[in-house]
Simulated assay, not measured.
Amino acid sequence: MGGCEIVVPPGWNVRLDILPIFGEAEDERKRRDRDHDEGDLVVTGFAAFGAVSISD
């Protein structure tokens, strides 16, 4: 029943593989086109009654 904020450098490509249960998981950074599909950072897991947000 809380949340977490993950701060990453602006140039990183982040992939979220999170199952939110009564919560949310989102990348709040401004979108940029990337040359590759793989993530520099892959966040996995689940969020129950809370949120996971990515910011720079």
Rank of each mutant, 00 (worst) to 15 (best):
S53E: 07
N13W: 01
K30I: 15
M1A: 13
G11A: 12
R34Q: 12
T44V: 11
A47M: 12
V8K: 01
W12S: 13
G2W: 00
A48G: 05
G45I: 04
K30F: 12
G39F: 04
G3R: 02
D40M: 11
G2M: 05
E24A: 15
F49M: 15
V14A: 03
F46Q: 12
P20I: 03
E5T: 13
P10D: 13
I54P: 01
G45K: 03
V52I: 14
M1G: 15
I6K: 00
D35N: 11
L41H: 02
G50C: 06
V42T: 14
A25P: 05
G11S: 12
P20M: 02
G45V: 04
V43L: 10
A51C: 03
I6E: 00
G2D: 08
V8E: 02
F46M: 13
A47I: 12
A25I: 03
I18M: 03
E24I: 07
G2P: 07
D40P: 12
D37Y: 06
A47T: 14
I6M: 04
L41T: 03
V14P: 07
E24S: 15
G2F: 04
R15W: 01
D56H: 11
G23K: 02
S55N: 06
P9W: 03
I21R: 06
V42C: 09
D17R: 08
G11F: 06
D35M: 10
A25G: 14
T44Q: 09
I18Q: 00
V43F: 00
I54D: 01
F46S: 14
A47F: 02
G11P: 00
P20S: 04
F46T: 09
R34D: 05
R32A: 14
V43R: 01
C4H: 00
E28I: 09
G2N: 10
V7N: 02
E24K: 11
G50K: 01
R34S: 13
R29Y: 07
L41P: 02
R31V: 15
R32G: 09
P9H: 07
V8Y: 00
W12D: 10
P9Q: 09
